[in-house]
Design a protein around this nucleic acid. Sequence first.
DNA 1: TTGCCGACTGAACGAACGTTCAGTACCGTC
DNA 2: GACGGTACTGAACGTTCGTTCAGTCGGCAA
Lengths: 248, 248
Amino acid sequence: MGTMDDATVADSLAPGREGRATAPASARDQIRACALELFAERGVAGTSVRDIAACAGTSPANVLHHYGSKEGLRAEVDAEVAALFDVAAAAPPEEIAAAMAADQGSGSFAELLLTQVPPDSPVPAYVRRLLLDGGDAGRHLFRGWFQAARTMQEGLVSTGAARQPADPDARAAFLLVNDLAMILLREHVADAIGTDPLTPEGAARWTVDALDVYHHGAFHVPARPTETDPTPASSLPHPPSPTTKEHA
Amino acid sequence: MGTMDDATVADSLAPGREGRATAPASARDQIRACALELFAERGVAGTSVRDIAACAGTSPANVLHHYGSKEGLRAEVDAEVAALFDVAAAAPPEEIAAAMAADQGSGSFAELLLTQVPPDSPVPAYVRRLLLDGGDAGRHLFRGWFQAARTMQEGLVSTGAARQPADPDARAAFLLVNDLAMILLREHVADAIGTDPLTPEGAARWTVDALDVYHHGAFHVPARPTETDPTPASSLPHPPSPTTKEHA
DNA sequence: TTGCCGACTGAACGAACGTTCAGTACCGTC
DNA sequence: GACGGTACTGAACGTTCGTTCAGTCGGCAA
């Protein structure tokens, strides 16, 4: 499928440029790049075919000419982004586990992948949408990631690099979603700590603290009389919620 | 089409305390409850005023009569959900810190709040949208959470319950987004581990593993020959990305 | 040259959109 | 009874949506 050349999103962002000098990206690729960016920014429902056509410097009819329908265009953009991060298809999980075990300094999974896209790329935002409401595509993407994380964890445990988890599925999912949270809440994190965690500097700062927690923990284990403390969450600080209703 | 004329949504959010079994909430509240559910499910742009009216069993004109415009309705739903979780307004951060320090068994923040909404509530999904593309409302929400998490962390550190972080902002943000990830990726987590983490059973299972990591860490600290290795991510498993472009 | 085919366009289609408006039904108060 | 106000509606408004279509342009093979 992705047999086209490497027209980047940054190229397509410039409307009406005389691209003959450097990158004569085909109109078809321009359209897809614009769709990727606009879908990521405003959502699929919030982006019209006319918007995409205007961004790509062509006519709305030409968008449909190349992709059949808006949904067809969306499907192709989905496939493009998913293929980018479909680690299950790109490499067998054992290979990923070995690679990340070698680079064990960074336990981050999503970060590892996202270092491959430029900081201003719309791909992270699109992945966000994909995970949020991209039904099958998002589900398949997450499943692949989870499987890879699961395999990677087994590898780390077997080499003694990771502690044996009591619930391997739960721990793998926990570590995975922690990584993905950085993508999903990227701008909020940047706003809170003052550094975009998807830039090299931000990633470094983030990783230092994440690894500190993952190596040494964040909380001291409370000095309980006995060890067993199975009840996780029962006492609430205050019950203000007006929408919580007592079931009669 | 879809889910409509369903009384459960209105019931779960009806503010009428004296509500009789058959006496429905006011049409105005019905409309807002339906908007909350549909916005959460399909997004604001993907939901029409006619959809909301059909769900609430009224006319589209009546929706506008009560809320002025679709944007006005959206703003009011935003405010309703935001007020639910605006911990900064509900209680001073010190109070929250003290409360969560007392309930230190559950270090989870979002989970603590979400235990107060029924499992089938559309509120978590709406919070998801709010954090993702609810501009000011989402930003304000996150900032309040971050501030509370920051204060709470200081409290835990001062009492010796938490390890002193090297970068307090980064660690507070790290722990916060880890909690929020469970909301954002709820259904993916449920799909992966087989249990919805926003049900009591799922939360228990999730918390056990999260606390295990937060107390004892996930990885063993590697036996380094010498000291620090600040480069976070340099060796990549494979460089396949076609959209990655070398910057000149 | 002729013929063909893919790229591409302007104009239009019907449907759905948010919104407006005149008007009806029902209320509690003179 | 008359009255004013709120809740509510059906029918439309103008706009924008995704999509269709007849047709032009340019390159390439015969």
